[in-house]
Simulated scan of single mutants.
Amino acid sequence: MTGSSDKTIGVWDLATGRQLGKPLTGHTDTVTAVAVGTLSGRTIAVSGSRDTTLRRWDLGTAQ
């Protein structure tokens, strides 16, 4: 996963180097941090942004 100055988060296939699906959107400024883990059996990501928010993403639904 990558955070970007275009306010999005990219999810990547590490074997092929290709992006999986569309970038995740919701932040209103540069994404500066991303962490991935599991919560109740679901793969999630948490992102932090210069917009001073944290967002939790369900990677199974991309929301």
Rank of each mutant, 00 (worst) to 15 (best):
R50Y: 14
Q19K: 14
Q19C: 00
T16C: 03
R42F: 05
G60W: 11
L39P: 06
G17N: 02
L14Q: 07
D51C: 07
V36M: 09
W12Q: 00
K22P: 00
S47W: 02
R50S: 08
T52R: 15
G48V: 06
R56Y: 10
T30K: 14
Q19Y: 05
M1P: 04
L54E: 09
K7H: 13
T53F: 07
H27R: 06
G10V: 00
A45R: 02
W57D: 04
G26K: 11
T38Q: 15
G37L: 04
W12P: 00
A35I: 08
T28K: 14
A62D: 15
Q63D: 15
T61A: 12
L54C: 05
R18F: 08
S47Y: 06
V46G: 01
T52I: 09
T28R: 14
R50F: 12
L24N: 04
L20E: 13
G48D: 08
V11D: 08
G37E: 10
A35S: 11
L24T: 03
K22N: 13
H27D: 02
S49E: 01
R55N: 02
A45I: 03
G10M: 00
R18S: 08
G3K: 03
G26P: 03
G17L: 03
T38W: 14
T43M: 12
A33N: 13
T32K: 14
G21R: 14
L24I: 02
T38L: 05
T2G: 03
G60E: 15
T30N: 13
H27L: 01
Q19H: 03
D29P: 02
D13W: 06
G21I: 02
A33P: 00
T16K: 12
T38S: 13
M1R: 13
T8H: 08
K22L: 14
T61F: 09
L24M: 03
R55I: 05
G3D: 01
R56Q: 14
A15V: 02
